[in-house]
Every structure is written in structure tokens, then in C-alpha cells.
Amino acid sequence: MKSIAFGQYYPANSPIHRMDPRAKVILTVLYIVCTFLCRNVLCFAAILLSAVLLCLVSRIPLRMILRSIRPLIMILAFTSLINVFMTKGEHLLTPTWQIPLWGSRVWRIKIYEEGLWNALFMILRIIILLIGTSVLLSYTTTPIALTDALERLFSPLKKIKVPVHDIAMMTTIALRFIPTLMDETQRIMNAQKARGADFSSGGLIRRAKALLPVLVPLLVSAFNRAYELAAAMECRCYHGGEGRTRLKILRLRFSDVFAVMLLVAFGVGIFFLNRQGIGYTMK
């Protein structure tokens, strides 16, 4: 289980790694907006270039980035097929393709040029979204730093009695214990395998049943851990967020603000590029 790094965080020393996590959250949101603003070839070229630049700056190996795209291949294929076949436009590419069905019925396949463009743009959009969020956030920010940033960003909500600190603390604890529980799962699975458990053969029901000897001890130990953690927190006089100081104080630097401003400018640029009537424009 050690081979699976949880939360995908990839330790490296890059400007993006060092950035204030709050700035990264804002940048990610802006980047997503930019991706959805893109409508024509020029915009997609610009944002693709920015995604490549981001990858280079972050010093995340290409292998890791491709790995995050791999599980989406089915979705990509599906969306592009739907776009190719379902988009109606003006430039028909396949006037004569007909597939005979039953009786005298035929199925006319109509592929329009617009459909091909739409498919391409959708694929690009999904891939760029993925690269943007993973490079800007998940690969370069530890889960703990991320919840910390979210707590600070949402802290104005405290005014309307939203328990921001408690939610952040719960998220942090949950994230903190995922690797621990994964280790534990692996350990218990190994222990049961050593007693001849077989998790990989048989039908669905048999496999679900085979997991019972793992789930019961896992739940028992998860509850025990929860009690222990609660006791340990009480022993250290934890009483919620009121008046709590921090070990790591987040400080916005000029470079963080500059990065956000740069991306806003980029978004404005995309907005104007959309208005140039170059090539096909997505609806």
C-alpha cells in the first residue's frame, strides 16, 4: 500500500509548491472559470500553453500527470463520441453513410464539422481542467495545508454561525487518518490472506462476503482510534476554534497576489479572444 500515495501530493520544491495555499485555491477557481470561458481555437491554444507552462513550473513529472488523466479515458471517449454524433451544424461531412436496420428502416449517420470541433474542444477542456486542478492543487498542496486554506477562506462565514473551524478540523482529521486506515486495511487483509482468505475469485456476493473478515476488525480499530484521539485532544484542552493560535501562520506574499492578478488578466484576455471570429466558435 506504500506504493499508493494518498491525496496525490507529490513532494518537490517548486514555486507552486511554495505558494500560499489560499492563493492556490483562488487560482484554481479562476483557472476553472478560464477553461469554461474558452470558445474558439485561439483561446484553447492559449490555455493549453498555460497548462503546459504550469506543468513545467511545478516540476511534477509528466508520468504523474498522465497517470491522473488515465482513469478519465473512458469518459473522454464517451463525451467525444456523443459530441461527434449528436451535434447538428451546417457543414455535413458524411452525406451518404447509411446503416440498414430492420425492415426498410435505415440509420443515417450524420457527422458535421461542428461536431468534430466540439468533440476536440470538450476533450481539451476536460484534460486542461484536470491538469489545472491537479498541478495547482492536489499534486502541490498537502491535504492539511488545503483544509487550512479553506478554513481561512471561509472564515467570514463564521459571522452567520457556520462552524467553519469545526468542519475544517473534522476534514483535517479525516484526511489525516486515510493513510493510517489504508495501512491498517492492508495489514488486516494480509493477516487474513495468511489464513487463506481469497479476495479475488468468485462472484460479486462471494467477494463481498470475503471482505467481512477485513471490515469487522477495521471498524473496531477505527472506533478505538477515534476514542483514543478524542481522549488525547481533551487531555490537551482542545475546546474548538475560539482563541486558538496557529503553529503555521499563512502569509500572503507579493508573488501570490501577483499570480492571482496575472490569471485575472489572462481570463480577461480569453474573454476578448472569444470575440474574434476565428474558426469555429463553440456555443
Binding site: 495489514r187 495468511a194 487463506g196 473478515p213 477485513v214
Partner: peptide
Amino acid sequence: LCFRVGLVMQYPEYQLFE
């Protein structure tokens, strides 16, 4: 193999489930 070489892991009491 796992029946011929019986392995008792560290803290095996955590594997009890029945």
C-alpha cells in the same frame, strides 16, 4: 503456501472478527 507457512503478524489480535 499460506497454509504450509503459517504467518502470525504483529499484533494479531486486530485480525479477530467472528
